[in-house]
Amino acid sequence: MAAIPPVCDFGAPIRDFSLPGTDGKVWTLDDVKGPNGTLVMFICNHCPYVMAVIDRIVRDAKELQALGIGVVAISANDVEAYPQDAPEHMVTLAEKHGFTFPYLYDGSQSVARAYDAVCTPDFFGYNSAGELQYRGRLDASRKEAGPADLRRDLFEAMKQVAETGKGPEEQVASMGCSIKWKDAA
């Protein structure tokens, strides 16, 4: 079922984390922060919304990194219910698509909960002070990639954040598969 996150809560603080990556390293927020801001993305391997735009995500992340934006992707899905999202498959996805950013596994789902992540993809764009400035979509694509000339909402917003410290007032929420939460114990 498609999920839509809430609108941007401007100024909400970035949340720290310590999570294992597909490279075998444990990553923290300090490891990924950029001098001009930070983009935290919640994605996964199986979601058709993510798979439709994974190459655009990688393209935009690389271009944002060149602008001084730190980028990280986190998968928090329940891998018992969705084994295709397991860490070993995350490694394959990151290698196949040439991720230039760490891809981390949130097995406890505590980081996803701290961010109030709702869906995949869910994008959180912060300025250099760690204040939320963007919680919107990548572009107007849905389960299928839209035309190549779509406005690059995420890229344009984070470019603005890198340059001014402020995100756009008008934002369109991302849409994707709901995060696959573990059953409460």
Rank of each mutant, 00 (worst) to 15 (best):
D106Q: 04
G176A: 03
A162T: 04
D116A: 11
A52H: 03
F17E: 02
P5M: 07
E95R: 14
S178L: 00
P13W: 14
E131F: 11
V118Y: 10
E170M: 14
V53S: 03
M175Y: 06
P87R: 03
D183Q: 12
T38I: 07
F10L: 15
T92F: 15
R56S: 06
I179T: 02
R137C: 03
Q160G: 09
A117V: 01
S141Y: 03
E63L: 13
K159H: 03
T22P: 02
C8L: 06
Y49L: 00
D149A: 10
I14P: 05
P20C: 07
V91G: 05
K25H: 13
H97V: 01
G130S: 09
V72M: 10
H46G: 04
H97P: 01
P5G: 00
D116C: 08
G24N: 08
V172W: 14
Q84M: 13
M1G: 12
S108M: 08
D139W: 04
W27R: 05
E156F: 02
S18R: 15
P5D: 04
W181S: 00
A2S: 13
A148T: 12
V32L: 08
Q133C: 10
G176K: 03
K166C: 12
K159D: 04
Q133I: 11
A66S: 12
M51H: 10
P168W: 08
G167V: 09
P83K: 05
H89R: 12
S75P: 02
G136C: 09
E95M: 13
F101C: 03
P87A: 11
S141T: 02
T28S: 13
D85C: 04
G130C: 10
G68Y: 12
D85M: 06
D139R: 02
R151A: 15
Y126P: 04
P168L: 10
N45S: 06
S18H: 15
L104C: 02
A12I: 12
L67S: 08
C44R: 00
R137G: 01
A94G: 05
L93M: 14
I69H: 06
L64Q: 09
A86M: 09
V118D: 01
T120E: 05
